[in-house]
């Protein structure tokens, strides 16, 4: 009954999808079936080149009577669920921006019943980390480029255990759901918070412009995610993945650099060092603030930026180009900084 509900609530037009799949199949007769399904998914904007490896990995883990095409359809359905979940999250207001609450609320409302449903697709004796891997792959944003199955497996295999009582598997579905989805929900909710903050600033500026006098928008780097990430690390000492750090750095740079606008290196260098140091410093606990003063952090950032300035060929670039060049540099800097805390 509950399984029927998932298919009813998050409907996908299987007939139409099958028609499209058959067209691809006829077009690429020389390809292997798994390659055809991978192509079908990529053409539906699901995943990237990693899709093929993911399909191969799950191929022998499907329940009797299920095929890779069923997995592909469920992948498409998962993105539909993601859309509904995102719509909900955009409107959610968790007290004190409690991220654990966001995870629990979303898992309870969107993924708990789904877990029962999707387990029918896979063999009963499948090891639980495969499910948390599947959740991470299925519910990551479709634009995610880094969904390499081996990387994801590496992260889950030692963390998500399968428990047995005598011969019977013990149900630990909620813990598995949390393992697979926590990072996704937290990242999505942080994006929502960031978007809200931006919207609020925009509104305030608009209000000021129309009611008082025109003030030039203060242009600065704002590392909301960097600050939160370091704060989380200081409180829980939880390991932070490089991917999360990269996202935070990317958000920090995006808050300043605009596509289509040219910037000279000297016009933002000092501001970048200052804002980066500010955001990192405000994320530190009181105890760590004593060991890492603002000036120290600025000094460390200055060293990195100075070395970088010697390698750049052009001093005037588009905002997106600066972001692309600076992301790996600042990511390495942030990783080293966090590791040394």
């Amino acid at each position: 009954m509950e399984n029927v509900n998932i298919e009813e609530i998050y409907k996908i037009d299987k007939e139409r999808l099958l028609g499209y799949y058959n067209r691809i199949k006829n077009q690429f007769k020389f390809l292997e079936p798994t390659q055809i399904i991978a192509k079908f998914l990529i053409n539906r904007s699901i995943g990237s080149n990693d899709v093929f490896d993911t399909l191969l990995y799950f191929k022998d883990k499907l329940a009797d009577g299920k095929e890779l095409l069923d997995l592909a359809f469920e992948w498409i359905r998962a993105q539909k669920i993601r859309l509904e979940y995102k719509k909900y999250l955009i409107r959610a207001q968790y007290p004190h921006n409690n991220l654990s609450l966001a995870v629990d609320d979303c898992i309870f409302k969107f993924f708990l019943e789904y877990d029962k449903y999707i387990r029918n697709l896979l063999k009963e004796d499948i090891r639980e980390h495969n499910l948390s891997v599947l959740y991470e792959i299925f519910f990551s944003p479709y634009e995610s480029k880094n969904l390499n199955i081996q990387d994801i497996l590496e992260r889950h295999i030692d963390k998500v255990h399968t428990h047995h009582h005598e011969m019977e598997k013990i149900n630990t579905n909620i813990i598995v759901l949390r393992s697979g989805l926590s990072i996704i929900v937290v990242k999505d909710y942080e994006d929502v918070l960031f978007a809200r903050k931006e919207e609020k600033i925009k509104k305030e500026l608009k209000f000021k412009k129309t009611t008082t006098y025109e003030i030039e928008q203060e242009n600065k780097f704002e590392g909301l995610l960097i600050e939160r990430l370091i704060k989380t690390y200081c409180i829980s000492s939880k390991e932070i993945s490089e991917k999360e750090i990269e996202n935070a750095v990317s958000q920090f740079l995006s808050s300043y650099f605009k596509f289509g606008v040219l910037y000279t290196f000297d016009s933002f260098k000092d501001l970048l060092i200052h804002n980066l140091a500010e955001d990192i410093f405000s994320g530190l606990s009181e105890k760590l603030k004593q060991a890492n003063t603002m000036e120290n952090i600025k000094y460390l950032a200055l060293n990195v930026i100075t070395i970088f300035s010697k390698t750049i060929k052009s001093k005037k670039l588009d905002g997106m180009a600066w972001k692309k060049d600076l992301t790996p540099l600042l990511k390495t800097f942030a990783v080293k900084f966090i590791n040394n805390l």
Binding site: D104, I107, F108, L112, N171, T172, N173, I174, I175
Partner: peptide, 10 residues
């Protein structure tokens, strides 16, 4: 369905 199973599973 969520809080109680989560305690036992944890």
């Amino acid at each position: 369905k969520y809080i109680h199973p989560s305690i036992n599973q944890s």
